[in-house]
């Protein structure tokens, strides 16, 4: 288009093209993280509830958490809960409503490839988890938490557990968001959150449950994650193989099912 003196001539002259994919992923991850942090209900779920549980159960002797300081038992459990709240509950609810309001539909015709969108969503979940771990670890330390593993190996084991847990919860959350109606997802994701909070070894030791029930509960992803984190952070163990295997199995099953049944609109 040639300039004709009119300052707006050629404003819309076609010049299509995608932005560099790395820039798209960063922008999308930043946007999704802002959406999460701006949402009051999500913050309640991801920051307020885990912090309150940690403070409450560490200061008041409600549940017998076994030998040792309560905070040493509680902190790994609450960290597992935090991962679940973001990767499963929060992601399921947010994605369910994105689907409902046509956000995913609109993004599907943007220049951003689908894999880049999924990468951005994962990056956003991990970014929120870093903030959660920072917050909860600070509160726990203030409450007298003394983690058993503090070296590189311990941190690496914790990071690996959190990543495996995130993959497991993301698959299940996306499966729920991509197959159910947004309102159903909202209700079901919160219900699952509460049930797993009680029965997933987060604040109540699994040993409190009868033997056969305990055996089943141990296979839950949140139980595997809290158990694994406890092995490392409370007991100073190395990488817990069986817990990692359980999380890995959930991740494969959940992500495969989500890939198979997820509906974008």
């Amino acid at each position: 288009m040639t300039a004709t003196g009119n300052t707006t001539a050629g404003t819309f002259a076609p010049r299509p093209g995608p932005a560099p994919v790395g820039r798209m992923i960063l922008a999308q991850a930043a946007l999704e993280t802002r959406m999460l942090l701006r949402n009051g209900e999500q913050l309640l779920l991801t920051a307020v509830i885990p912090t309150l549980l940690l403070v409450l159960f560490a200061s008041v002797d409600i549940v017998d958490t076994g030998s040792g300081a309560a905070v040493d038992f509680l902190t790994p459990g609450v960290l597992a809960l935090a991962v679940m709240s973001t990767a499963f509950t929060g992601q399921a609810i947010a994605t369910g409503f994105e689907r409902r309001y046509g956000v995913l539909k609109r993004l599907a015709v943007s220049p951003m490839p689908r894999w880049a969108l999924m990468t951005a969503k994962t990056a956003s979940v991990l970014a929120v988890e870093v903030l959660q771990v920072t917050l909860l670890a600070s509160v726990a330390l203030a409450l007298g938490w003394s983690p058993a593993a503090w070296g590189t190996a311990g941190i690496l084991a914790v990071a690996l557990l959190i990543v495996a847990g995130t993959a497991a919860f993301s698959g299940l959350g996306l499966l729920m968001a991509g197959t159910l109606k947004a309102e159903v997802t909202l209700a079901a994701a919160n219900l699952v959150f509460v049930l797993l909070l009680v029965g997933g070894g987060v604040v109540v030791p699994l040993e409190k449950f009868p033997g056969p029930v305990q055996g089943v509960l141990e296979l839950l992803p949140v139980a595997a994650l809290s158990g694994g984190l406890r092995d490392v952070l409370q007991h100073g163990g190395g990488l817990p193989g069986s817990e990692i295997a359980i999380l890995f199995a959930w991740a494969v099953a959940g992500l495969a099912a989500a890939a198979r049944w997820f509906r974008w609109e």
């Binding site: 093209g17 995608p18 798209m24 701006r38």
Partner: peptide, 22 residues
């Protein structure tokens, strides 16, 4: 539809612009 319910109008437009080269 097509927009995050919590996204601000200009924020969403800037984001969409950022997915394109020019």
């Amino acid at each position: 539809g097509g927009v995050y319910s919590g996204a601000r109008a200009e924020e969403m437009l800037r984001h969409t612009a950022g997915l394109h080269a020019h």
